[in-house]
C-alpha cells in the first residue's frame, strides 16, 4: 500500500503544484474556477486516452513517439506560460491597481485564462496517464494486495492534491499588488524547468545532442530524489546532474520570456491611429 501511495503521490504532486500556482496567478478573475476546472477535466480525459494508446504512441516515429509527445506537450505548456507572463507584464500593474482602487478582489479583465486552463490540462495529461496506467495495471492484476494498493493510490492522490492546496493557500496570503510579481516569477521558473525537461526528451529521441551529460554534480548537496529536491525539480526544473542541453533550454526560456515581458512593457513610441503613416507605401 505504501509503495503505491508514494508513487501516486509523486505523480499527482507535480500537477497539483502547477494548478496551485495557476490558481494563485489568476486570482480575482471572474469564472477562473470554471475555466481551470474545465482545463483539468480535459487533462484527465486526455490522460485516459493517452494511457489507452500508450503502446501505439510509444511505437510511433521509430519508437521515440513517447519522447516526442512529451516534449511537444511540455513545450506547448512553456508557450502558454510565456504568453501569460508577457501578457501580465503589460496588464498586471493596471489590474492590481484597479482592484485596489475599487477595494475589491474581482478584476474585470480578459486575461488569457485559456492559456492557464491549458497549462493545467497539460500538467494533468502528462502525470495522469502514468497514474492511470499504474493503477489500471494493479486493478487488472487482481490478487489479494490489489485492494490495498488501490487504496494507497487514492490516499497518495489526496495527499498530492493537499500539497497543491497548501501552496495556493500560502500564495493568496500575499497582498494582491505583490502577488502577480510572485506568481510571475514562479511561472517563469516553472516554464524554464519544463523547457529543460523537454530538452531531455528531445535528446532521448536523438533529435538533439546531450551537450555533456553531467555539467555539474550537486547530488551531495541536494539530492534530486529527496523531497526538497523533488519540489525544486517540479517548481524550477532542478537537476542534480544537468545535461548541457538542459541548461541551454533553461537559460533560453528565461531570456526569451524576460525579453518578451520587457518589450511588452515598453511605452509605445507611436500612438496607433494618431500619427500619419510615414515612408512610402510598398509598390
Amino acid at each position: 500500500m505504501l509503495a503505491s501511495l508514494i508513487i501516486v503521490f509523486r505523480e499527482v504532486l507535480e500537477a497539483s503544484l502547477v494548478i496551485g500556482i495557476v490558481m494563485a496567478a489568476s486570482r480575482g478573475v471572474p469564472r477562473r474556477g470554471a475555466w481551470i476546472l474545465g482545463g483539468c477535466a480535459l487533462g484527465v480525459l486526455g490522460a485516459c486516452i493517452v494511457a489507452g494508446f500508450a503502446g501505439e504512441i510509444s511505437s510511433l516515429v521509430d519508437g521515440v513517439g513517447q519522447e516526442l509527445f512529451n516534449a511537444a506537450i511540455l513545450l506547448a505548456a512553456v508557450a502558454m506560460l510565456a504568453w501569460h507572463n508577457i501578457w501580465m507584464s503589460r496588464h498586471g500593474r493596471e489590474l492590481a491597481a484597479s482592484a485596489r482602487r475599487l477595494g475589491k478582489d474581482v478584476i474585470d479583465g480578459t486575461r488569457p485564462l485559456t492559456a492557464l486552463a491549458l497549462v493545467c490540462g497539460i500538467a494533468l495529461l502528462r502525470e495522469g496517464s502514468e497514474v492511470v496506467l499504474f493503477l489500471y495495471g494493479i486493478a487488472v492484476s487482481g490478487g489479494a494486495s490489489a485492494g490495498s494498493m488501490l487504496l494507497g493510490g487514492l490516499v497518495g492522490c489526496a495527499l498530492g492534491l493537499a500539497v497543491g492546496v497548501a501552496l495556493y493557500a500560502g500564495l493568496i496570503f500575499i497582498p494582491l499588488r505583490h502577488l502577480f510579481r510572485v506568481t510571475g516569477a514562479l511561472i517563469l521558473l516553472l516554464a524554464a524547468g519544463m523547457a529543460s525537461q523537454a530538452a531531455i526528451y528531445l535528446a532521448a529521441a536523438n533529435v538533439l545532442p546531450t551537450l555533456g551529460n553531467r555539467i555539474w554534480d550537486s547530488s551531495a548537496l541536494l539530492s534530486e530524489t529527496s523531497l526538497p529536491g523533488q519540489l525544486l525539480h517540479i517548481l524550477a526544473g532542478y537537476t542534480a546532474r544537468p545535461a548541457g542541453i538542459q541548461l541551454v533550454f533553461f537559460v533560453a526560456t528565461l531570456v526569451l520570456i524576460s525579453a518578451g515581458s520587457w518589450f511588452a512593457t515598453r511605452p509605445p513610441r507611436v500612438i496607433a491611429g494618431a500619427t500619419p503613416v510615414t515612408g512610402q507605401a510598398p509598390s
Binding site: V61, D62, A72, L75, A205, N206, V207
Partner: peptide
Amino acid sequence: ALLAGTLARA
C-alpha cells in the same frame, strides 16, 4: 517535433 523525429536514426 514529428519531422525531427523521423530524422532520428539508429
